[in-house]
Amino acid sequence: MSNNNEPTIAQDPWLSLKQFTPARIALGRVGMSLPTRACLDFQLAHALARDAVNIPLDFAGLEQRLKKEGYQTLTLQTQAENQTIYLQRPDLGRLLSASAAACLRHNAHLPVDAVVVVADGLSSTAIEHHAEPFLRLLLPELQQRDYRLPPVCLIKHGRVAIGDAVAEHYSAKLCMVLIGERPGLSSPDSMGIYFTYQARSGISTDADRNCISNIHNNGLSYQQALKKLLFLVNEAEKLQLSGVNLKDETTDATANVQQKQANFLLD
Protein backbone atom coordinates (compact mmCIF):
# COMPACT_ATOMS: atom_id res chain seq x y z
CA MET A 1 0.00 0.00 0.00
CA SER A 2 1.34 3.42 -0.84
CA ASN A 3 1.13 6.04 1.86
CA ASN A 4 0.67 9.04 -0.38
CA ASN A 5 -2.50 10.01 -2.18
CA GLU A 6 -1.56 8.51 -5.52
CA PRO A 7 -4.01 5.80 -6.53
CA THR A 8 -2.28 2.49 -7.01
CA ILE A 9 -2.36 0.71 -10.31
CA ALA A 10 -2.93 -2.93 -9.51
CA GLN A 11 -0.78 -4.98 -11.89
CA ASP A 12 -2.03 -8.47 -12.66
CA PRO A 13 0.52 -11.04 -11.52
CA TRP A 14 -0.02 -13.15 -14.65
CA LEU A 15 1.71 -10.93 -17.22
CA SER A 16 3.65 -13.97 -18.42
CA LEU A 17 0.44 -15.26 -20.05
CA LYS A 18 0.82 -12.58 -22.71
CA GLN A 19 3.29 -14.88 -24.47
CA PHE A 20 0.39 -17.10 -25.53
CA THR A 21 -2.02 -14.64 -27.09
CA PRO A 22 -2.25 -11.30 -28.86
CA ALA A 23 -5.40 -10.62 -26.77
CA ARG A 24 -5.35 -7.66 -24.36
CA ILE A 25 -4.92 -9.68 -21.18
CA ALA A 26 -3.39 -8.73 -17.82
CA LEU A 27 -4.18 -5.06 -18.36
CA GLY A 28 -4.22 -4.31 -14.64
CA ARG A 29 -6.68 -1.92 -13.05
CA VAL A 30 -7.25 1.23 -11.06
CA GLY A 31 -10.03 0.39 -8.66
CA MET A 32 -11.95 -1.94 -10.99
CA SER A 33 -11.31 0.18 -14.08
CA LEU A 34 -8.87 0.26 -16.96
CA PRO A 35 -5.61 2.11 -16.19
CA THR A 36 -4.87 5.20 -18.30
CA ARG A 37 -2.19 3.55 -20.40
CA ALA A 38 -4.37 0.60 -21.44
CA CYS A 39 -7.26 2.97 -22.08
CA LEU A 40 -5.21 5.16 -24.42
CA ASP A 41 -3.62 2.14 -26.12
CA PHE A 42 -7.09 1.09 -27.16
CA GLN A 43 -8.02 4.59 -28.34
CA LEU A 44 -4.84 4.71 -30.43
CA ALA A 45 -5.63 1.43 -32.16
CA HIS A 46 -9.21 2.54 -32.79
CA ALA A 47 -8.05 5.89 -34.20
CA LEU A 48 -5.78 4.11 -36.70
CA ALA A 49 -8.60 1.83 -37.75
CA ARG A 50 -11.10 4.69 -38.10
CA ASP A 51 -8.67 6.75 -40.14
CA ALA A 52 -8.04 3.76 -42.39
CA VAL A 53 -11.78 3.67 -43.12
CA ASN A 54 -12.42 7.38 -43.44
CA ILE A 55 -9.33 9.12 -44.84
CA PRO A 56 -9.74 9.06 -48.63
CA LEU A 57 -7.17 7.19 -50.67
CA ASP A 58 -4.74 9.44 -52.59
CA PHE A 59 -5.68 8.11 -56.03
CA ALA A 60 -3.53 10.67 -57.87
CA GLY A 61 -0.51 9.62 -55.81
CA LEU A 62 -1.13 5.95 -56.53
CA GLU A 63 -1.49 6.68 -60.26
CA GLN A 64 1.82 8.51 -60.18
CA ARG A 65 3.61 5.70 -58.42
CA LEU A 66 2.32 3.13 -60.89
CA LYS A 67 3.09 5.36 -63.86
CA LYS A 68 6.66 5.65 -62.63
CA GLU A 69 6.85 1.86 -62.79
CA GLY A 70 5.57 2.02 -66.35
CA TYR A 71 1.99 0.93 -65.75
CA GLN A 72 -1.07 2.61 -67.24
CA THR A 73 -4.03 3.27 -64.96
CA LEU A 74 -7.66 4.35 -65.19
CA THR A 75 -9.30 5.92 -62.14
CA LEU A 76 -13.02 5.20 -61.96
CA GLN A 77 -15.80 5.90 -59.48
CA THR A 78 -18.72 3.75 -58.36
CA GLN A 79 -22.29 4.89 -57.83
CA ALA A 80 -21.54 5.43 -54.13
CA GLU A 81 -20.93 9.15 -54.35
CA ASN A 82 -19.36 9.67 -50.97
CA GLN A 83 -18.08 7.73 -48.00
CA THR A 84 -21.31 8.00 -45.99
CA ILE A 85 -23.32 6.50 -48.85
CA TYR A 86 -20.59 3.96 -49.54
CA LEU A 87 -20.76 2.60 -45.98
CA GLN A 88 -24.55 2.31 -45.97
CA ARG A 89 -25.16 1.12 -49.52
CA PRO A 90 -22.86 -1.76 -50.45
CA ASP A 91 -25.04 -2.31 -53.54
CA LEU A 92 -23.96 1.06 -55.00
CA GLY A 93 -20.30 0.23 -54.42
CA ARG A 94 -20.71 -2.69 -56.82
CA LEU A 95 -21.89 -0.52 -59.74
CA LEU A 96 -19.84 1.81 -61.92
CA SER A 97 -20.98 5.42 -62.10
CA ALA A 98 -22.30 6.68 -65.43
CA SER A 99 -19.12 8.62 -66.07
CA ALA A 100 -16.96 5.62 -65.21
CA ALA A 101 -18.92 3.43 -67.60
CA ALA A 102 -18.58 6.09 -70.32
CA CYS A 103 -14.86 6.35 -69.64
CA LEU A 104 -14.48 2.61 -70.10
CA ARG A 105 -16.48 2.70 -73.33
CA HIS A 106 -14.27 5.45 -74.72
CA ASN A 107 -11.16 3.58 -73.72
CA ALA A 108 -10.78 1.63 -76.96
CA HIS A 109 -9.13 -1.66 -76.27
CA LEU A 110 -7.63 -4.71 -77.85
CA PRO A 111 -8.61 -8.18 -76.67
CA VAL A 112 -7.79 -8.69 -73.03
CA ASP A 113 -7.17 -11.79 -70.89
CA ALA A 114 -7.02 -10.46 -67.35
CA VAL A 115 -8.08 -7.33 -65.47
CA VAL A 116 -6.37 -6.02 -62.37
CA VAL A 117 -8.60 -3.81 -60.24
CA VAL A 118 -7.61 -1.85 -57.13
CA ALA A 119 -10.41 -0.64 -54.85
CA ASP A 120 -10.09 1.43 -51.66
CA GLY A 121 -12.70 -0.74 -49.91
CA LEU A 122 -12.79 -0.30 -46.14
CA SER A 123 -9.14 0.59 -45.63
CA SER A 124 -7.42 3.25 -47.71
CA THR A 125 -4.33 2.66 -45.58
CA ALA A 126 -4.13 -0.93 -46.80
CA ILE A 127 -4.12 0.15 -50.44
CA GLU A 128 -1.77 3.06 -49.73
CA HIS A 129 0.72 0.65 -48.11
CA HIS A 130 0.42 -2.52 -50.13
CA ALA A 131 -1.13 -2.06 -53.60
CA GLU A 132 1.83 -0.59 -55.48
CA PRO A 133 4.53 -2.88 -54.04
CA PHE A 134 2.34 -5.91 -54.66
CA LEU A 135 1.52 -4.87 -58.24
CA ARG A 136 5.25 -4.47 -58.92
CA LEU A 137 5.52 -8.21 -58.23
CA LEU A 138 2.25 -9.31 -59.82
CA LEU A 139 2.15 -7.42 -63.11
CA PRO A 140 5.51 -8.67 -64.45
CA GLU A 141 4.41 -12.24 -63.65
CA LEU A 142 1.20 -11.77 -65.62
CA GLN A 143 3.06 -10.20 -68.54
CA GLN A 144 5.55 -13.03 -68.49
CA ARG A 145 2.64 -15.42 -69.01
CA ASP A 146 1.65 -13.40 -72.09
CA TYR A 147 -1.60 -12.23 -70.55
CA ARG A 148 -2.94 -9.17 -72.33
CA LEU A 149 -3.84 -6.54 -69.72
CA PRO A 150 -5.78 -3.28 -69.97
CA PRO A 151 -4.76 -0.37 -67.71
CA VAL A 152 -4.96 -1.13 -63.99
CA CYS A 153 -8.37 0.16 -62.87
CA LEU A 154 -8.29 2.17 -59.64
CA ILE A 155 -11.76 2.35 -58.16
CA LYS A 156 -13.05 4.88 -55.69
CA HIS A 157 -15.65 3.64 -53.17
CA GLY A 158 -15.52 0.14 -54.57
CA ARG A 159 -16.74 -3.19 -53.18
CA VAL A 160 -15.34 -6.55 -54.25
CA ALA A 161 -17.96 -7.15 -56.94
CA ILE A 162 -16.97 -3.98 -58.83
CA GLY A 163 -14.32 -6.15 -60.46
CA ASP A 164 -17.10 -8.07 -62.22
CA ALA A 165 -18.23 -4.93 -64.05
CA VAL A 166 -14.69 -4.21 -65.22
CA ALA A 167 -14.02 -7.80 -66.26
CA GLU A 168 -17.29 -7.91 -68.15
CA HIS A 169 -16.51 -4.69 -70.00
CA TYR A 170 -13.22 -6.09 -71.23
CA SER A 171 -14.59 -9.63 -71.70
CA ALA A 172 -11.66 -10.74 -69.57
CA LYS A 173 -11.28 -14.30 -68.38
CA LEU A 174 -9.45 -13.48 -65.18
CA CYS A 175 -10.36 -10.82 -62.66
CA MET A 176 -8.16 -9.82 -59.72
CA VAL A 177 -9.37 -7.27 -57.21
CA LEU A 178 -7.03 -5.80 -54.61
CA ILE A 179 -9.12 -4.21 -51.86
CA GLY A 180 -8.74 -2.69 -48.39
CA GLU A 181 -10.22 -5.06 -45.81
CA ARG A 182 -12.34 -4.06 -42.82
CA PRO A 183 -9.72 -2.91 -40.33
CA GLY A 184 -9.28 -4.65 -37.02
CA LEU A 185 -7.72 -2.97 -34.02
CA SER A 186 -4.47 -4.85 -34.58
CA SER A 187 -4.47 -4.68 -38.38
CA PRO A 188 -5.72 -1.34 -39.76
CA ASP A 189 -3.94 -1.86 -43.10
CA SER A 190 -4.87 -5.35 -44.18
CA MET A 191 -5.31 -5.92 -47.94
CA GLY A 192 -7.32 -8.70 -49.54
CA ILE A 193 -7.27 -10.12 -53.06
CA TYR A 194 -10.36 -11.59 -54.68
CA PHE A 195 -9.92 -13.74 -57.75
CA THR A 196 -12.80 -14.60 -60.08
CA TYR A 197 -12.76 -16.63 -63.29
CA GLN A 198 -15.18 -15.41 -66.01
CA ALA A 199 -16.53 -12.70 -63.69
CA ARG A 200 -19.83 -11.20 -64.83
CA SER A 201 -21.67 -8.35 -63.19
CA GLY A 202 -24.78 -9.38 -61.30
CA ILE A 203 -24.09 -13.05 -62.03
CA SER A 204 -20.89 -13.86 -60.17
CA THR A 205 -21.42 -14.39 -56.45
CA ASP A 206 -19.12 -14.81 -53.47
CA ALA A 207 -19.21 -18.55 -54.09
CA ASP A 208 -17.48 -17.92 -57.43
CA ARG A 209 -14.53 -16.13 -55.85
CA ASN A 210 -11.35 -17.13 -54.13
CA CYS A 211 -10.07 -14.84 -51.43
CA ILE A 212 -6.54 -14.25 -50.22
CA SER A 213 -6.90 -12.31 -47.03
CA ASN A 214 -4.82 -10.68 -44.37
CA ILE A 215 -1.98 -9.20 -46.45
CA HIS A 216 -0.06 -6.80 -44.19
CA ASN A 217 3.24 -6.54 -42.39
CA ASN A 218 2.25 -8.91 -39.58
CA GLY A 219 0.14 -11.14 -41.81
CA LEU A 220 0.62 -12.73 -45.21
CA SER A 221 3.70 -11.43 -47.08
CA TYR A 222 3.56 -10.18 -50.68
CA GLN A 223 5.49 -13.25 -51.81
CA GLN A 224 3.12 -15.62 -50.02
CA ALA A 225 0.10 -13.83 -51.45
CA LEU A 226 1.59 -13.84 -54.95
CA LYS A 227 2.29 -17.55 -54.75
CA LYS A 228 -1.31 -18.24 -53.75
CA LEU A 229 -2.72 -15.99 -56.45
CA LEU A 230 -0.61 -17.51 -59.23
CA PHE A 231 -1.59 -20.99 -58.03
CA LEU A 232 -5.25 -19.99 -58.30
CA VAL A 233 -4.69 -18.50 -61.76
CA ASN A 234 -3.06 -21.70 -63.02
CA GLU A 235 -5.68 -23.98 -61.52
CA ALA A 236 -8.55 -21.81 -62.74
CA GLU A 237 -7.17 -21.99 -66.27
CA LYS A 238 -7.05 -25.78 -66.00
CA LEU A 239 -10.48 -26.24 -64.38
CA GLN A 240 -12.09 -23.23 -66.06
CA LEU A 241 -13.68 -22.11 -62.80
CA SER A 242 -12.99 -20.34 -59.53
CA GLY A 243 -14.63 -20.21 -56.13
CA VAL A 244 -15.68 -22.97 -53.78
CA ASN A 245 -14.69 -25.71 -56.23
CA LEU A 246 -11.18 -24.36 -56.60
CA LYS A 247 -9.21 -25.21 -53.48
CA ASP A 248 -6.09 -23.34 -52.51
CA GLU A 249 -3.60 -26.13 -51.97
CA THR A 250 -0.58 -23.95 -51.31
CA THR A 251 0.59 -24.22 -47.76
CA ASP A 252 2.11 -21.32 -45.96
CA ALA A 253 4.72 -21.72 -43.30
CA THR A 254 2.76 -19.93 -40.57
CA ALA A 255 -0.40 -22.01 -40.89
CA ASN A 256 1.51 -25.24 -41.10
CA VAL A 257 3.48 -24.93 -37.91
CA GLN A 258 2.74 -27.84 -35.64
CA GLN A 259 0.31 -26.39 -33.14
CA LYS A 260 1.48 -26.63 -29.56
CA GLN A 261 -1.09 -28.64 -27.67
CA ALA A 262 0.30 -27.62 -24.29
CA ASN A 263 -2.13 -25.93 -21.95
CA PHE A 264 -0.83 -24.67 -18.62
CA LEU A 265 -4.28 -24.86 -17.00
CA LEU A 266 -4.44 -28.61 -17.49
CA ASP A 267 -0.92 -30.01 -17.84
Binding site: F20, P22, A23, I25, Q259, F264, L265
Partner: peptide, 21 residues
Amino acid sequence: QPNHPTDDPAGVAASLLDGLL
Protein backbone atom coordinates in the same frame (compact mmCIF):
# COMPACT_ATOMS: atom_id res chain seq x y z
CA GLN B 1 -15.23 -15.25 -24.68
CA PRO B 2 -11.57 -16.37 -24.78
CA ASN B 3 -11.18 -16.46 -28.56
CA HIS B 4 -7.82 -16.96 -30.21
CA PRO B 5 -6.90 -16.45 -33.91
CA THR B 6 -5.76 -20.08 -34.34
CA ASP B 7 -7.58 -21.79 -31.43
CA ASP B 8 -4.22 -22.38 -29.79
CA PRO B 9 -5.03 -24.12 -26.48
CA ALA B 10 -2.59 -22.09 -24.40
CA GLY B 11 -3.81 -18.90 -26.08
CA VAL B 12 -7.41 -19.74 -25.23
CA ALA B 13 -6.38 -20.72 -21.69
CA ALA B 14 -4.56 -17.41 -21.17
CA SER B 15 -7.66 -15.34 -21.96
CA LEU B 16 -9.83 -17.79 -20.05
CA LEU B 17 -7.79 -17.46 -16.88
CA ASP B 18 -7.56 -13.68 -17.27
CA GLY B 19 -11.37 -13.61 -17.41
CA LEU B 20 -11.93 -15.93 -14.46
CA LEU B 21 -9.55 -13.88 -12.34
